[in-house]
Design a protein around this nucleic acid. Structure first.
Length: 214
DNA sequence: GCCAACGTTGGC
DNA sequence: GCCAACGTTGGC
C-alpha cells in the first residue's frame, strides 16, 4: 500500500498554541523570523510541541497528504478493511508526528496534493499507532533508505482507516481565503505531508464543507 | 558550527 | 515547467 510520496521538506513552522485555543493570530512559541530555528532544539520543545501533548482522553486532529494519482481517498475506501499503512514518509518532522503524535482514535483530514484542485476530501481515523516502516529497509522499494536500520528504525508509519468523505471537497484556495484558517499548518508550511490540525480549524473546515463554496 | 550546494515538494 | 521554501549533505 503505497501512499504519500516521501516528503522532504518543511518544518520550522509556527503553529499556534493549544488545540483548545482559538486559531487566533497568536504565534505563541514560534520562531522569530529573523532567527533560524535552532537545529539542535528537540522537537518536543519547538514550534510543534503542542502536537505531542494532550489531555487524558483527548482526541487530536491531523492532516495527511497524498497525491490522488498515487493513492487517493477512494483508494483508501477500496482497500481491505478500508485501511492502509501510511508508509514511505521520509521527512523527519512528519515522522515525528507519525511515531509520537498520532494516537488511536485520532481523526485525520485526507488531502489530495498535486490535484485539480488540491483539496481536503475526506476523513480517516488512526487505527494503529506509530510502528516501524518496513519499506525503509526493502532494497526493492522506491523509498528504500540504506541508512535505516531495522534494529533502530528511522522511519515510522501509522495505519489509517477510511471514515467518510467530506460533504464536499474543500480546496486549498478556499482554505487560504478563510481567515479562521490563517494559521493552519497546511497553509503556513506547505510541504509537510503530515501536520497537526487544531480543533477549531477542524470544525471550521467541516462547516465550510457543509455549505456551498463562496 | 557555518554555509554553499543540492534535492524535493507542490502550488501555480 | 518554474520556482519558493524548505531539508539535507558535506567541505572546511
Amino acid at each position: 500500500m503505497p501512499k504519500s510520496r516521501p516528503t522532504a521538506s518543511k518544518s520550522s513552522p509556527k503553529a499556534s498554541s493549544k488545540p483548545s485555543s482559538k486559531p487566533a493570530a497568536k504565534p505563541s512559541a514560534t520562531v522569530s523570523p529573523k532567527k533560524k530555528a535552532p537545529k539542535s532544539m528537540p522537537y518536543e520543545q519547538g514550534a510543534w510541541a503542542f502536537a505531542f501533548t494532550r489531555e487524558p482522553g483527548e482526541r487530536r486532529y491531523w492532516l495527511i497528504k497524498s497525491e490522488p494519482d498515487v493513492f487517493s481517498f477512494d483508494d483508501l475506501r477500496a482497500a481491505p478493511k478500508r485501511t492502509t499503512s501510511w508508509d514511505s514518509v521520509r521527512n523527519s518532522s512528519a515522522r515525528n508526528f507519525l511515531r509520537d503524535g498520532m494516537k488511536q482514535g485520532d481523526l485525520c483530514f485526507y488531502y489530495h496534493s498535486n490535484a485539480d484542485p488540491s483539496a481536503i476530501v475526506g476523513i480517516c481515523e488512526v487505527v494503529k499507532e506509530g510502528y516501524p516502516d518496513p519499506t525503509a529497509w526493502d532494497p526493492a522499494h522506491d523509498y528504500f533508505d540504506p541508512k535505516s536500520d531495522p534494529d533502530m528504525p528511522t522511519w515510522f508509519m501509522v495505519d489509517v482507516k477510511h471514515v467518510e468523505p467530506l460533504a464536499r471537497a474543500v480546496s486549498l484556495t478556499e482554505i487560504k481565503a478563510e481567515p479562521a484558517l490563517a494559521n493552519m499548518a497546511l497553509v503556513r508550511t506547505g510541504r509537510l505531508s503530515v501536520v497537526p490540525i487544531l480543533a477549531d480549524e477542524w470544525q471550521t473546515v467541516l462547516e465550510m464543507a457543509a455549505r456551498p463554496p463562496r
